[in-house]
Design a protein around this nucleic acid. Structure first.
Length: 150
DNA sequence: GCCAACGTTGGC
DNA sequence: GCCAACGTTGGC
């Protein structure tokens, strides 16, 4: 691979946050499965975010409901394709794989109280299940959670 | 195209 | 379990 190609990949990487109720599908489930199709998204904004994902993009996995924290990092390994679980409508899913767990989880409360993270979509619109994360937010969260990507 | 009614999600 | 916020649906 050329150096130009490498640089392009880095420059072009996008970051995301995927929300899941752990009683339905948790980070531990993803680690067990290693990879999974992220199906079941039935919201237009979330679907558009799924469509914008590229192979190699990274996403935090956030546990909604009882935990309310960011727990791990996943990588997009297949871009959007028709969601096989959708009986009607143009819904899509992407394939993700577990990369690393966070060194420690980062709770919603702490996100709300951390300068630089208060602008996260999670804070303004906690209901959106597939959200973009800025590069600055991404790096800050890696730092706060003591998470190292190999 | 507006808006009331309804359903769902998720924080508390 | 409650309820606020949000998104979708459907009547007009």
């Amino acid at each position: 691979m050329s150096l130009k190609g490498v640089c392009y990949c880095f420059k072009d990487m996008s970051y995301w946050l995927l929300k899941s109720d752990p009683s339905t599908y948790s980070w531990d489930d993803l680690v067990r499965d290693k990879e999974t199709d992220w199906t079941g998204v039935r919201n237009f904004q979330a679907r558009n975010n799924l469509r914008a994902m590229k192979v190699g993009d990274r996403a935090f996995v956030y546990h909604s409901q009882e935990d309310k924290d960011i727990v791990g990092v996943a990588e997009i390994v297949e871009a959007a394709k028709p969601d096989p679980t959708a009986e009607e409508g143009e819904w899509v899913s992407v394939r993700i794989k577990a990369l690393v767990p966070c060194g420690r989880s980062l709770g919603l409360e702490e996100i709300r109280n951390t300068p630089g993270l208060t602008t996260m979509v999670l804070v303004a619109n906690s209901r959106l299940s597939v959200q973009p994360v800025s590069e600055a937010q991404w790096n800050a969260i890696l730092k706060y959670t003591k998470t190292t990507l190999s």
